[in-house]
């Protein structure tokens, strides 16, 4: 049922918008092309911001800093029955969407779909967005340089999300495994 919803949502949305347009006598073709003109401008505008944030994060990942942070956090998180392998996913979550998905795929393949670590990571990945990417692209597209409290709020919410994921998953999934 939910899968069907996500399959039909997009085409139905487009159909509704176009149909309402025709009924209201909007010149849909002219207006469409008029609006679409901005597509190139907006995409090109965000390149500098994308380069800054993606290069920075790629370098950070390549330096091996992630493994170091994971090894520091491991003993602490172990107390809350958080699997060590899920730590890189938690750290990367706010930084890079494609890297997180890559890490999650690796974990899913390595430990199988029924492992607790796989399920925990699935919930973490499935329940949040890439804060750094969203902020730099959205603010970058309109030339905002001072983010004020947006980054703090985004990161705090990510942190709360991870804590919630750990709590919910340990309640839902752990007893089944033993």
């Amino acid at each position: 049922m939910l899968n069907l919803l996500s399959l039909y949502a997009l085409p139905v949305l487009i159909l509704v918008i176009l149909t309402v347009g025709i009924i209201k006598k909007v010149p849909v073709y002219e207006e469409f092309t008029e609006g679409a003109k901005d597509g190139f401008k907006v995409s090109v505008n965000i390149i500098p911001y994308l380069v800054a944030i993606i290069v920075g994060i790629s370098m950070f990942r390549a330096s091996g800093a992630m493994d170091w942070i994971a090894s520091v956090l491991a003993p602490l998180l172990h107390k809350f029955s958080v699997p060590v392998d899920s730590i890189p996913v938690m750290i990367t979550r706010s930084l890079s969407g494609s890297a997180t998905l890559g890490l999650f795929s690796e974990i899913a393949q390595k430990f199988g779909p029924d492992a607790y670590v796989t399920k925990l990571c699935a919930v973490i990945v499935g329940s949040s967005e890439t804060t750094f990417y969203v902020l730099s692209v959205y603010f970058g597209s309109i030339g905002i340089k001072k983010f004020r409290y947006a980054l703090i709020v985004g990161l705090l919410a990510d942190f709360i999300g991870i804590v919630a994921a750990v709590l919910v998953c340990s309640k839902v999934f752990l007893p089944n495994i033993g």
Partner: peptide, 11 residues
């Protein structure tokens, strides 16, 4: 981006 900005303008 161009596609959705076009659709959004109709909306």
């Amino acid at each position: 981006m161009a596609f959705w900005l076009g659709i959004m303008r109709i909306a």
